[in-house]
């Protein structure tokens, strides 16, 4: 049997809002490591990795590893049936082809059963060692930059140098360049912009995906943007005390 109980149920709602437009169907893997997911978008341009660790739940029981295939739009619909302050319990019996969501509030409870799906998926090894630039900044600022740039162009060039991180785009009406410099706020670390770089790096990415990733903004005050030497982009939002949601995005490359 698998069962988890999340007191702050709104957190799971925010997770679903962050990924449901990027990925249609995905396997949620339940193991001693936690409640996790790895899935690509249908075009295989982006990959999302989610981990919610067992100690973040009020109760977490996983007798054996199971993989629950879910349509994320349907899961989101069910989560919206619960109130924002509800406690959420998710339960699946071994061998069952359904999963049960229970919502509890001081006023009562509600149960929803959702059909599971068989989804073919592969797990991917993620090599963090090739990282050559890391930028941590306020997530709201990153969201604003992606939104502003997508009103001008379709693609953003992200360049990290000793000067800071530059986001640039070009469109029919002209060009846009936004530079964020390192800025460490000791009193409010969540408002800091911190840049760590082993070598300058620059690459371009579709803004449509970047804007999709920023739907995770309500999960965290800060976002960490990493670029590897192979120009793979990783955008990570930590989920307080529990884990993370990471988005990986493949670059646009010269023909």
């Amino acid at each position: 049997m698998f069962e988890l109980r999340l007191v702050q149920g709104s957190l799971l709602k925010k997770v679903l809002e962050a990924i449901k437009d990027l990925v249609n169907d995905a396997n949620f893997d339940c193991s001693a490591t936690g409640f996790s997911l790895q899935a690509m978008d249908p075009s295989h341009v982006a990959l999302v990795a989610l981990l919610l660790r067992p100690d973040g739940f009020e109760h977490y029981r996983c007798d054996r590893n199971i993989s629950m295939g879910m349509n994320l739009n349907n899961m989101s619909k069910i989560l919206k049936c619960g109130g924002n302050d509800d406690i959420i319990t998710i339960r699946a019996d071994d061998g069952s082809d359904t999963v049960t969501f229970m919502f509890e509030s001081p006023n009562g409870s509600a149960n929803f059963e959702m059909n599971l799906m068989d989804i073919d998926s592969e797990h991917h090894g993620i090599d963090e060692s090739k990282c050559c630039a890391v930028v941590r900044m306020p997530s709201s600022e990153f969201q604003r930059i992606c939104k502003v740039l997508s009103s001008i162009g379709d693609t953003v060039v992200i360049s990290v140098t000793n000067e800071g991180v530059q986001f640039s785009t070009r469109g029919d009406i002209g060009t846009a360049n936004i530079v964020c410099r390192q800025n460490i706020n000791v009193d409010k670390p969540e408002e800091s912009t911190v840049i760590e770089m082993s070598q300058p790096v620059s690459s371009q990415f579709p803004l449509r995906y970047m804007n999709s990733f920023t739907k995770a903004t309500p999960l965290s005050n800060t976002v960490t943007i990493s670029l590897t030497s192979e120009l793979l982009l990783a955008v990570e939002y930590t989920i307080a005390e529990m884990g993370y949601i990471r988005f990986y995005l493949a670059p646009k490359i010269e023909d």
């Binding site: 690509m40 295989h44 990959l47 797990h123 090894g125 793979l232 646009k252």
Partner: peptide, 14 residues
């Protein structure tokens, strides 16, 4: 011009 690469080339299957 530039073309979009796919994510699969960056990850090894487990």
């Amino acid at each position: 011009g530039s073309k979009q690469s796919t994510i699969t080339r960056f990850f090894s299957k487990i």
